[in-house]
């Protein structure tokens, strides 16, 4: 199968949650607080895709699988998906929470640390999305990898953004933070090859 078709199929799979959400939106199935559902779902998927992106290296180390879509491309699609879901998340917030009012959004960012942290995470994702092409990878040489290590910080900020907005039940953000911690530790140590 040609590579670009494989790439297309994996991208389509990553777009599935957004597709389901659009379907629910059009069929009025988002529940009592549709905007909250849209925000929470796109936010959750941003974190899932970031954690999936960070899982690629440990998976490679542990199992050295034969990737159906080459590893670097799989990781790229996952990373770009995180970016797209984060953009959707921001757009929904800006349109429905801030009523497309830039002043209101700026005040909100200034007043609420969790909004600022989320915004920071998204802005840090922008250079990574832009330089995700092979051309940029060649041009930046060894700096490319250094730059893309920003994803560690971005994931941390993304989960922190979530943790700071919940009222009392920290179970989910703590679970995500734990998974993030495990994925980071797996980078620090030499892992046994299980396959």
């Amino acid at each position: 199968m040609p590579l670009f078709i494989k790439l297309f199929i994996v991208s389509l799979i990553c777009a599935l949650p957004a597709g389901l959400l659009t379907f629910d939106l059009l069929t009025d199935n988002l529940g009592a607080n549709p905007v909250e559902t849209l925000e929470h779902t796109t936010g959750d998927w941003t974190i899932y895709f970031l954690l999936l992106t960070l899982s690629i290296t440990p998976i490679q180390k542990l199992f050295s699988p034969k990737w159906w879509l080459p590893m670097h491309l799989t990781r790229r699609v996952l990373g770009l998906s995180a970016f797209v879901y984060a953009l959707l998340h921001l757009a929904i917030y800006f349109v429905f929470d801030m009523s497309v009012d830039l002043n209101e959004a700026l005040t909100d960012i200034a007043e609420r640390p969790f909004i600022l942290i989320g915004m920071l995470a998204l802005f840090l994702l922008i250079p990574l999305a832009i330089t995700s092409t092979q051309g940029w990878q060649r041009r930046l040489k060894r700096h490319w990898q250094t730059l893309h290590k920003l994803v560690y910080l971005i994931t941390f900020l993304g989960i922190l953004h979530y943790a700071l907005l919940v009222k009392a039940d920290l179970f989910m953000p703590l679970l995500y933070m734990t998974l993030f911690g495990i994925l980071m530790l797996m980078r620090q140590f030499k892992l046994p090859r299980l396959r």
Partner: peptide, 13 residues
């Protein structure tokens, strides 16, 4: 952690 100036009626965007 958030403004109380506005509210979203359930069912509305």
């Amino acid at each position: 952690r958030w403004s109380q100036a506005k509210e979203r009626p359930l069912g509305s965007f």
